[in-house]
Amino acid sequence: MRIIENEFYDRIRENPVIAAVNNLKKLEKAIKSPCEIIFLLTGDIFNLQELVNHVKASGKSVFVHLDLIEGFSRNVCALKYINEIIVPNGIITTKSSLIRTAKEMGLFSIQRLFMLDALSLQSGINSIKTIRPDAVEILPGIMPRVTKTISTEVNIPIITGGLISDKEDVIASIKAGAVGISTSKEEIWYM
């Protein structure tokens, strides 16, 4: 197992709540929170290096959502730059081709999937089985039955995110098989 995988699993076991930062004003609060992992859902080509370094200096792990960082194209060249120059703990993306390439680079990769209907559920399961990301984030995260279906179909850690609003949502996700939940709701960071 790669070192970064061990680090991810250790941190998610320590605290299954992941601080999803979608506004830079929340970054300091996320860093000061008990969350061990931060999903960076904002930033741009000019500040990404500084943001990643700041989070890592705080002792937390940071995963960059490639699809949401402004100024980078969603291609292999940008991924290579982020891996070699920015050096996050890992990446998040909806793009299967980037997951595959990230894994080849040795970069921890989380595939984000949106569950809209039965077709997207089956398509997502097939994609997970084919691509084999290091972890999967499914949205919205308030669907324990879908979480349970995916977690029993694939042997890959599941993270739920989106529309998580209270402790009951967190507990339901964990009981359904998720190893963690990502949320931008600060009050949940302190659960």
Results as ranks from 00 to 15, higher is better:
Ile18His: 00
Glu7Lys: 13
Glu36Ala: 11
Asp166Lys: 03
Cys35Pro: 09
Glu50His: 10
Leu79Asp: 04
Met143Lys: 11
Pro140Thr: 07
Phe108Pro: 06
Ser73Lys: 14
Glu186Leu: 06
Gly141Lys: 13
Ile110Trp: 09
Thr130Tyr: 11
Leu139Gln: 05
Ile158Cys: 09
Ala172Ser: 14
Gln122Ile: 07
Gly162Thr: 03
Glu187Lys: 14
Lys80Ser: 10
Thr160Leu: 01
Ile82Trp: 01
Lys167Trp: 10
Leu41Cys: 00
Asn23Val: 13
Ser61Gln: 15
Leu113Cys: 05
Thr152Tyr: 12
Ile38Glu: 02
Lys80Cys: 04
Lys129Arg: 13
Leu107Glu: 03
Leu41Tyr: 06
Gly177Cys: 06
Ile156Pro: 00
Arg112Ile: 01
Gly141Pro: 12
Leu24Trp: 08
Thr94Ile: 11
Gly90Glu: 06
Glu137Leu: 11
Thr147Pro: 05
Ile174Tyr: 00
Leu66Glu: 06
Gln111Thr: 01
Val64Tyr: 00
Arg132Phe: 02
Cys77Leu: 14
Asp166Gln: 00
Ile31Tyr: 08
Lys25Ala: 14
Glu14Lys: 15
Ile181His: 01
Ile181Asp: 02
Gly90Gln: 07
Pro140Tyr: 05
Phe108Leu: 12
Phe39Asp: 09
Lys148Ile: 00
Pro34Met: 07
Gly124Leu: 05
Glu7Pro: 02
Tyr81His: 14
Ile150Lys: 09
Pro88Arg: 01
Leu107Gln: 06
His65Ile: 05
Ile131Thr: 09
Ile171Asn: 08
Asn83Lys: 10
Phe46Asn: 14
Thr152Ala: 09
Pro157Tyr: 01
Ala178Trp: 07
Ser127His: 04
Leu79Ala: 02
Val17Lys: 01
Ile138Asp: 02
Glu168Ile: 08
Lys129Tyr: 07
Phe46Ala: 12
Ala176Ser: 09
Arg112Thr: 03
Val17Gly: 02
Ser182Cys: 08
Pro88Met: 01
